[in-house]
Amino acid sequence: MNAEKGKFLKAAGSIWGQRVTILVAVIVVMAIVQPRFFSSGNMLSILLAIAFYGVIASGMLFVVLIGGIDLAVGSEAALGGTIFTMYVLAHDMSAGTFFTAFLLAILVAILVGLLHGFFDAYLGMPSFVVTLATQYALYGLTQYITKMNYLPVLNASGLFYQLGNGKLFGIPSPVIWFVILAVIAAFVLKKTPYGRRIYAVGGNPHAAELVGVSSKFHKMTAYIICAVTASIAGMLLVSMNMVSSYKMAAGYEGPVLMALVIGAVNLMGGEGSMGGVFFGALLVGIINNMLILIGIDTDYKEFVQGCIIILAVAINVYTSRKSQGLVDQKRRRMPWLNRPKRGAPDG
């Protein structure tokens, strides 16, 4: 028993050991290359960037764990933020209006999640295609309802203002939202039957059905959770910037997926933890910031981001295949490996 515990701690220690080492290394490099990195203003902007990606990643984790993907998170954030803003603009800055607007945006997110879940779980459509399509549809819808305009909120005050700009012990509200959502996600996934069943559905949907776990239910709810967190991120964004635009979270799916992949979430489903995603979001935030600080132009920045995604996915796929012991599967998929060797013993 003791040996087992020791081994386990060693394994857990080593993965976090690696992660901390990487973080420290990146920060040290930053400190040497660009001392401005440690300015309080820069720290704050890193934290905020991480917070927005992180809020969405906490929900996206559920979708990726059940073996899906949600590419529409940027448009879900835009739609949620826009509905929230329009409702507030049409009424007032009272707390009552704020809560109604907030719930309205969440409700729309639930509908979007239901739609995604239906297409995946009931029609068996690949989530990649479904959410790519809804991404366009939702951007279009957001443009349509805003008549393609930016919606500035000139008289922002009260809860609407506090949502994105408030601070608790000096920590900006979006960061607190991220921490709270991450803790809830980690708790649900680790400690509740629902969370464990999410892993089961992603790990093997047929086997899950045979132990009484409905893959349809868990897929539907995972997409809903993801859309809701994206919508929350959108509302945080409009509140902080005091302006809503359909482009405000465009391209967010990239860094969010990068955070998941760097956090060792298996894109085939069934494997990954909130702790890993937390680390991934941290690293993505710092790297993005680094690329800005070094002052390279935007085109090149995207090139580097792209390379990092490819590298992270390659490592992710390689390690997950190794952990599944899929050597045989590889042979099945690549039949030419089975060709008998010439010169084998012959009489």
Binding site: R197, G203, A207, A208, V211, V213, N266, G270, S320, S323
Partner: peptide
């Protein structure tokens, strides 16, 4: 392999999955 166990889940998770 296709209907019985969950390859990426560990032994404990595979054993407890029907007993929450």
């Amino acid at each position: 392999r296709t209907e019985g166990f969950f390859p990426v889940l560990n032994i404990a998770e595979n054993l407890t999955v029907a007993s929450y």
